[in-house]
Simulated assay, not measured.
Amino acid sequence: MRVTFLGTSGAVPTTQRNTSALLVNRDGDRLLFDCGEGTQRQMMRFSTGFAVDHLFVTHCHGDHVLGIPGLVQTFDFNDREAPLAIHAPHGTRGQIEDLVHAAGNDPSFPVRINQVGPDEVVLDRSEYEVRAVRTDHRTDAVGYVIVEDDRKGRFDREKAEEELGLPPGPEYSKLHRGESVEHQGRTIEPEEVVGPPRPGRRMVYTGDTRPTDAIAAAAEDADLLVHDATFASDWADRARATAHSTAREAAAIADRAGAKRLALTHISTRYAGDPSPIEREAREHFDGDAWIPDDGDRFEVPFPDDGGERPDSDDA
């Protein structure tokens, strides 16, 4: 699961940060979350490709959706035929339709708009699903959670070979699939060589929000929480007035949830020259790994049992 941060600024872009957008490549499935103005250029700049079939919109403020007209028209220019699904909060269909058809554009490919609410399963795949989660902003808004299915248990090859005398071969695959096999007159059951199921990965993207109980619950044991951290605590009153979060509040949610890593986004232009107060504040209140990603940074989300440290941006 590779996360590419396409836009990490607040409501206004800066010379270093674009408005909100994040792309997740989950084993070839490219999922785009929010689409601020200029997202299509960010996708080209950071080589994510345009093979996006699902766009998940957290809310319809401009810095999260004004990239939709350009992206849809770019798809058209590239002779796209595959359908595009746009998922957005209940009550926003008309706004999304206006964006899709901006400047009289009539896409040559199918565009399906799916309105979603908190706790709904938005996308159901064979190995993972995307759910909506309740957020607290100034308009109809949701966040999104990617939850992978449990994985198969570890296969104990040493026991299979040395204790059971079973040589490598197709029987290993059968046992790993949960099927018993016959060997030298005895039946070997899967549980003899296959450990218990292992959890998949969990990632949460909040969009713009105040800290909420729902986000804390959705981010329980999350491998990555991407949370609004528009301000440091010196602007806590402004955060409350505009329904955003401070870095300290984001850190408190991550800590309460037991999340392993916290990526701080939607950084106010007040910190354009030096965002370190936000990062420093989060690290003071969260024991896990907290950082502010730059536009273009990539992060491979590790499996829960694989550990893994956040790579430096140069190595991403």
Results as ranks from 00 to 15, higher is better:
residue 177 R to D: 15
residue 287 D to C: 08
residue 249 E to I: 09
residue 74 T to A: 08
residue 178 G to F: 03
residue 247 A to V: 00
residue 161 E to S: 09
residue 259 A to R: 06
residue 207 G to C: 09
residue 277 P to I: 04
residue 132 A to L: 05
residue 179 E to P: 00
residue 3 V to I: 15
residue 255 D to R: 08
residue 197 P to H: 13
residue 17 R to P: 01
residue 34 D to H: 07
residue 207 G to N: 09
residue 124 D to M: 10
residue 106 D to A: 15
residue 258 G to M: 11
residue 209 T to N: 03
residue 89 P to L: 07
residue 29 D to N: 12
residue 35 C to Q: 01
residue 96 I to F: 00
residue 181 V to E: 03
residue 72 V to Y: 01
residue 290 A to S: 08
residue 66 L to I: 06
residue 33 F to Y: 06
residue 10 G to S: 02
residue 295 D to Q: 06
residue 150 D to E: 14
residue 189 E to T: 14
residue 180 S to T: 01
residue 184 Q to G: 13
residue 83 P to E: 12
residue 18 N to A: 14
residue 304 P to K: 05
residue 9 S to N: 08
residue 85 A to C: 05
residue 78 N to H: 13
residue 277 P to Q: 03
residue 118 P to T: 10
residue 72 V to M: 06
residue 152 K to N: 11
residue 95 Q to T: 02
residue 6 L to T: 03
residue 73 Q to C: 07
residue 255 D to M: 05
residue 252 A to W: 06
residue 147 V to S: 15
residue 274 D to R: 13
residue 245 S to M: 04
residue 118 P to H: 14
residue 177 R to V: 08
residue 119 D to R: 11
residue 206 T to G: 00
residue 132 A to D: 06
residue 187 T to W: 04
residue 40 Q to D: 14
residue 166 L to E: 11
residue 292 I to S: 06
residue 41 R to Y: 12
residue 284 E to H: 01
residue 14 T to E: 03
residue 45 R to T: 15
residue 147 V to I: 14
residue 130 V to Y: 02
residue 90 H to T: 11
residue 193 V to K: 04
residue 33 F to V: 06
residue 25 N to R: 02
residue 117 G to K: 14
residue 182 E to A: 14
residue 102 A to Q: 05
residue 275 P to G: 11
residue 158 E to I: 13
residue 162 E to C: 08
residue 139 T to I: 10
residue 93 R to L: 04
residue 175 L to Y: 05
residue 59 H to I: 09
residue 245 S to C: 07
residue 295 D to M: 07
